Simulated assay, not measured.
Amino acid sequence: MGFSPLGLVVALCVLAPTLLLVWFPPQVPVPAAHVPRALGLLERAGQALCVVVPAITLPGRLIGWWAVPAVVALVGYYALWARYLLDGRTATALYRPWWVLPVPMAILPVLVILSTAAWLSNPWIAVAGVILAAGHIPASVIIARAVQAGAQDVP
């Protein structure tokens, strides 16, 4: 245990765009979707762990080239937040597929965290990332299906 400034910076960089939803929520609320309770709890645990664990665990030997996929995934994540804002803050912009990624706004933060774990040689960050992936990605797929179904109902 210990404090990791690099881990804190990464955690804040991944968390910060989500705060946009406080000030810029979707114009039309996201349709209700039934996310199983266990999956929702797993998602929340993963989110909390991915904010806390990088900051409170010391890195091992830095493996510099792993910073590249972390930064690329983070830039992609920020670009998707820009898409959300520029597309009029629609739920479909939050859950629309991009390239080969079915729920990129869920997958890219996981990639940032897992790449950071490799970059900082920190297995605890990897565990947090796997827990996040196990909850956040399937929950986002469920919500994305509800958003797509709602979009098809609109004339």
Rank of each mutant, 00 (worst) to 15 (best):
G129F: 07
V72W: 03
P102G: 02
L39K: 08
G60M: 12
P123N: 14
L120N: 08
W66Q: 10
R89M: 11
L85F: 14
I56F: 10
L41I: 11
A11P: 01
G76F: 01
P138F: 07
L39F: 06
T57R: 05
V68P: 00
I56T: 15
I131M: 13
E43R: 12
H34K: 14
Y95T: 02
V53Y: 09
P25G: 06
A139L: 03
Y77L: 04
A134V: 05
A126P: 04
A128L: 14
V130D: 11
W119D: 02
T116I: 03
V14A: 14
V28H: 14
L114K: 01
R61E: 13
P104E: 05
A70D: 05
W65F: 15
Y77P: 00
L132A: 13
R37G: 04
P97E: 04
P31G: 03
L21M: 07
P54F: 13
L8D: 06
Y77R: 00
H136I: 00
V52H: 09
R83M: 11
V14C: 07
P109N: 08
T18G: 06
V130N: 09
A93K: 14
V103K: 00
Q47L: 14
Q47P: 00
A82T: 02
A73H: 03
V100F: 09
A82L: 15
D87T: 12
V51Q: 09
W98D: 00
A106S: 09
V147G: 05
A151G: 12
V10L: 09
W98K: 01
R61D: 02
Y77V: 00
A82D: 02
H136K: 05
G150M: 11
V130P: 08
V147N: 05
A134P: 04
A11E: 01
V68A: 08
P97Q: 07
I113H: 10
A16D: 06
V68N: 00
L62T: 06
Q152E: 15
W65N: 03
I142P: 02
W65R: 11
A45M: 14
P155F: 12
A93I: 04
W124P: 00
R89Q: 15
W23T: 13
W99Y: 07
V154S: 15
A79Y: 04
Y95L: 01
A133R: 03
Y95V: 02
C13M: 15
Q148A: 14
P59R: 12
P36K: 04
A48E: 06
Y77H: 04
A32V: 13
P25K: 08
P31V: 07
A38K: 10
P29C: 06
G60N: 13
T57H: 08
L8K: 06
Q148S: 12
A144C: 08
V9G: 03
M105Y: 02
H34M: 02
V103E: 00
P69L: 15
V68F: 11
I63L: 13
V22G: 02
L101A: 09
V28Y: 11
